[in-house]
Design a protein around this nucleic acid. Structure first.
Length: 923
RNA sequence: GCCCAGGUGGUGGAAUUGGUAGACACGUUGGACUUAAAAUCCAAUGGACAGUAAUGUCCGUGCGGGUUCAAGUCCCGCCCUGGGUACCA
């Protein structure tokens, strides 16, 4: 074999390991560049061809940056805590650590075969104590911090304590639990230590509290909001219900505004930014209290349309609202209670899916309109969510469609407060309408009226301008085994941090299931099973999957550090991740949490930047190409795609291994399954069985999975790398089709032959290159450099092909040309490039070679071929000297024979000439 | 419903700032080499029409308008596909 890729790839993978080619150290003499792939979870299924797509792109970029003289950090590791290994442990009793280890080894083996330039000496595993020790350490820092809205940053909790001793909490401006009481310094000092701890817990950035959580019975744990999709768990698709539980949370809401602002600083694609903006869900408006008639109670509402205050004709409380019981009148009690019961029975999912039907009940109570003093009926309705705002709304049926629907259904008055606007068929939600029938707001636009109304409620002291966020605090505990233990123990039910500096390690347990009492699996561990045990008991929850992945990019900078999570010096050197590549599925989970932790660590002075990922690219999914066979109903006869129209057939997936170019290998198919042994076939006119096809997600059940291993075996890693890039733009979703891989493989062989003779011996010429050869080379240098810079990884391959095709036509085997071309291809086909580079006589790795310099002069042309258009239609081309002036071009064109032919004897109205671009003659 | 991507040959895609639409590949067809096959090499390949041919004409980037000397690219309106989100007051 002329290009013996199997031998070459093995040889260079061994040598890279031996030479430690990709090991990287901090080096202040060079500019740094940090290229990172999203942390993979090592699943048991291994990699399919879709997984390495992003890794290949980042690897190419990392290699390119090294050639350009950057000191490149390009690490890889494993987010190795997680549910699948634990589910497997529950089923089989095998410790999740063993499953995880096996899966990692398989992953590593597959990754190594593709020839990545990872610095494996920096490998991380979140499930290793020397890693999660520092995850626990960050948790401790969060526990020991509160957020100060005056300084707009996180501060040590000790500073809060000092303030509480000085002035109580009257002057403290900090996000805290809603039930935090107001107290003086004296009152604070009078509290017991335990009581003080309970108060401080209400301010800490990570805190324990009784909250409504997403409980997933199927997984036996609570889930964060981003882990729930349509009322079901994202992993496993189990139903999720609301449950009141005591849980650890992260006060991410304190960072809502900064998380929003920070999006302006990063180069991410707009759709991900938009998803985060929606998730944070900022809305500006006002909070306002309504008095309740014959009651001391007040109902607080949040509204973004305070301008429509005069249009309020009723109020609606969520069924779970705490005032429902106390304000409902005796005569309405029965109706309200039965409504609330019905609402409680409905799952979150049902309530969300059943948006169309309007339901509610009247409480019998009335609120007082703060400006008109009119009585407004108070209703309850499940279209108002307890979890957003205050769980109550002031209903303005003329200006809000939901309120309109509700009023319409229950026959409540719909007051029109918009000038020249018809609201008989629906509400007017257009902010452009002028306010009318609204006393001091009449005649104003929405914007002006909102401002005036806020001033008015502030003056009356019944409300104020307020910004609301949809973002909720993130639940941080999981009732699972395979996760980070908390560095927390309990004493008299007060949670305290372990004062031991060492890591609280995951104890051994007899089973990976909850206890009889429903306690998490860690409750099974006896005192002596813990390496650290303090107080009455240790925390039994573990941390969620996103704990370890929220800061891993920092640990890569200093993975072996035993005294710090990362040294300041190294964090300052490597800084932000310059290029982050991964899927878009982490938009509101990982990508939001790591931004949160980064900002926190920045606030507390541990790192010098507050956004983790400067630029991000989200690679699109590679879809599978499935094949189908068609069985005639109630028979064992299969019919070719093109003949099936005359029969009733059922379509079935067939393994793509049994199909070549949509033609079925009938013998192989018969052997595939016992039941097809005797199958009959109706072939098409050419005697072939043609299969149908469809593009869909790769999955085992569709028999369309393509693993990289087979392809590496058959074509080599370099071909696979190039082909995955050649498929199309990185960010696009695209179907996988192995048909095209031959083209890329042939290209590498063609390149190989350029440098070898018929006997496969290296054969190079030391002659001076010709003008044409230099032109081909420099055209390639220019295009390849520009395209990699703008991350257009697909067109780079095309341009290398063009260069090789041209040099092949020129029969160019000049050392001078090929040495640069080898460096150009090195990021894409590193083994191939190393082998040729060595054959050229180099003793060092091609990765140390400088990127070729582009020289404009080789592309200079004496002539330019002008497209000559008439009325915008291109008719012919004309080669003219490149340095002609506009006037000369016009003269030449007009004098040309063919021009006259197209002029049809007319005089041109206009002649447009763009030098080195186009000539257009307007008739 | 709302928000964000995207829609170009038989297929994947290219065209970076408005300037020769379809680069580069795959596939298909024909040819060379070969006892044969594979591999390799060469040629053709958006569609329609006219011509023996060289060649020429028309149509053509989801649809309908518009701006411009010139539109895949810009503007307006719509259709379709994919993703996100959904009673958020």
């Amino acid at each position: 074999m002329e290009y013996d890729f199997n031998r070459i790839e093995q040889k260079w993978q061994d040598r890279w390991r031996e030479w430690q080619t990709y090991k990287v150290e901090e080096d202040t003499s060079k500019p740094k560049f940090y290229v990172l792939d999203m942390f993979p979870y090592p699943s048991g299924a291994g990699l399919h061809v879709g997984h390495p797509l992003g890794y290949i792109a980042s690897d190419i970029y990392a290699r390119y940056k090294r050639h350009k003289g950057f000191n490149v950090l390009h690490p890889m590791g494993y987010d190795s805590f997680g549910l699948p290994a634990e589910q497997y442990a529950i089923q089989t009793g095998q410790h999740p650590a063993i499953t995880t280890e096996n899966n990692i080894n398989r992953y590593r083996e597959q990754l190594d075969k593709i020839g990545f330039s990872f610095d494996w000496s920096r490998e991380l595993r979140t499930s290793e104590p020397n890693y999660y020790k520092w995850t626990q350490w960050i948790f401790k820092q969060l526990f020991n911090s509160y957020y100060c809205n005056i300084d707009n940053k996180a501060l040590p909790i000790s500073e809060l304590v000092e303030e509480l001793e000085r002035n109580g909490n009257a002057l403290v401006q900090s996000p805290c639990d809603e039930d935090t009481p107001l107290f003086t310094a004296e009152e604070w000092k009078a509290l017991s230590e335990a009581e003080q701890q309970a108060i401080l817990l209400k301010y800490r950035l990570t805190f324990l509290s009784e909250t409504w959580v997403n409980w997933c019975e199927g997984l036996g744990t609570v889930l964060a909001n981003d882990e729930v999709k349509d009322g079901r768990s994202e992993r496993g698709n189990f139903p999720v219900e609301q449950k009141l539980m005591k849980q650890w949370s992260m006060r991410i809401t304190a960072y809502a505004e900064r998380l929003l602002e920070g999006l302006e600083q990063v180069e991410w694609n707009d759709s991900i930014k938009e998803i985060q903006r929606n998730w944070i869900g900022k809305s500006e408006g006002a909070s306002l209290r309504f008095s309740v008639e014959n009651s001391s109670e007040q109902i607080e509402v949040f509204t973004t349309r305070l301008d429509t205050i005069y249009g309020v004709t009723f109020m609606v409380l969520a069924p779970e609202h705490e005032l429902v019981n106390s304000i409902t009148t005796a005569s309405q009690k029965e109706e309200v209670e039965s409504y609330c019961q019905q609402a409680a029975l409905k799952s979150e999912r049902d309530r969300q899916s059943d948006v169309k039907s309007v339901t509610g009940a009247f409480t019998g109570a009335y609120a007082i309109h703060p400006f008109t003093n009119e009585k407004i009926p108070i209703w309850i309705g499940d279209y108002v969510l307890a979890s957003y705002g205050t769980g109550a709304v002031m209903a303005v049926p003329c200006g809000d469609q939901r309120d309109w629907n509700f009023a319409n259904k229950f026959g409540i008055e719909i007051k029109n407060i918009f000038k020249d606007t018809d609201i008989s068929e629906g509400a007017n939600e257009d902010k452009a309408a002028i306010i009318d029938n609204s006393d001091f707001l009449s005649g104003l636009t929405a914007q002006e009226a909102i401002q005036q109304a806020i001033l008015a409620i502030e003056k009356k002291e019944i409300g104020k301008g307020k910004t609301n966020y949809r973002l909720r605090d993130a639940i941080f505990s999981r009732q699972r085994y395979w996760g980070e233990p908390f560095p927390v123990y309990y004493e008299n039910d007060i949670p305290r941090l372990t004062n031991d500096e060492s890591c609280v390690e995951l104890p051994e347990v007899d089973k990976y299931l909850p206890t009889e009492e429903g306690e998490p699996p860690l409750a099974r561990a006896k005192k002596e099973d813990w390496n650290v045990f303090q107080g009455d008991r240790m925390e039994h929850n573990t941390m969620p999957g996103w704990a370890g992945s929220s800061w891993y990019f920092l640990r890569y900078m200093d993975p072996q550090n035993d005294t710090e999570f990362v040294s300041k010096e190294k964090a300052d050197y490597w800084g932000q991740v310059d290029l982050y590549i991964g899927g878009a599925e982490h938009a509101v989970g990982h990508l939001l949490y790591s931004r949160f932790w980064t900002k926190f660590l920045y606030d507390r002075g541990f790192i010098a930047f507050d956004e983790p990922f400067k630029k991000m690219i989200n690679q699109g999914m590679i879809l599978g190409r499935s094949n189908f066979v068609y069985r005639i109903k109630d028979s064992n006869t299969f019919i070719s795609l093109d003949k099936r129209k005359d029969y009733k057939t059922s379509r079935m997936h067939v393994d793509i291994e049994l199909v070549d170019k949509d033609v079925l290998d009938i013998e192989a198919f018969k052997k595939w399954r016992e039941e097809y042994k005797e199958a009959e076939f109706i072939l098409n006119d050419e005697g072939k069985y043609i299969c149908g096809f469809e593009v869909e997600k790769m999955s085992k059940s569709k028999y369309n999975v393509q693993t990289p291993d087979d392809l590496v075996e058959k074509f080599g890693a370099d071909t696979l790398r190039m082909y995955e890039m050649f498929l199309g733009p990185l960010e696009q979703f695209k179907p996988w089709d192995t048909k095209g891989i031959n083209g890329v493989h042939n290209f590498l062989r063609k390149f190989w032959r350029l440098a070898h003779d018929e006997n496969n011996q290296i054969h190079l010429s030391d002659d001076e290159p010709t003008k044409a050869e230099l032109k081909s080379l420099h055209k390639a240098i220019k295009k390849v450099t520009e395209d990699i810079d703008r991350k257009a990884f697909n067109t780079v391959v095309s341009n290398l092909m063009i260069a090789v095709n041209e040099l092949n036509d020129l029969k160019c085997n000049k050392r001078y040309i090929l040495k640069d071309l080898i460096v150009l291809i090195a990021p894409y086909a590193p083994h191939f490039a190393e082998e040729l580079w060595e054959k050229l006589g180099h003793t060092e790795s091609v990765t140390l070679a400088n990127w070729p310099k582009f020289d404009e002069q080789h592309l200079k042309e004496d002539a330019f071929t002008y497209p000559i258009s008439f009325n915008g239609k291109m008719r012919f081309t004309l080669e003219l000297s490149a340095d002609l002036s506009k006037e000369d071009i016009e003269k030449e064109v007009m004098a040309f024979e063919k021009t006259k032919q197209y002029m049809e004897g007319k005089n041109p109205k206009r002649i447009i000439i763009v030098p080195k671009k186009i000539v257009n003659i307007v008739l």
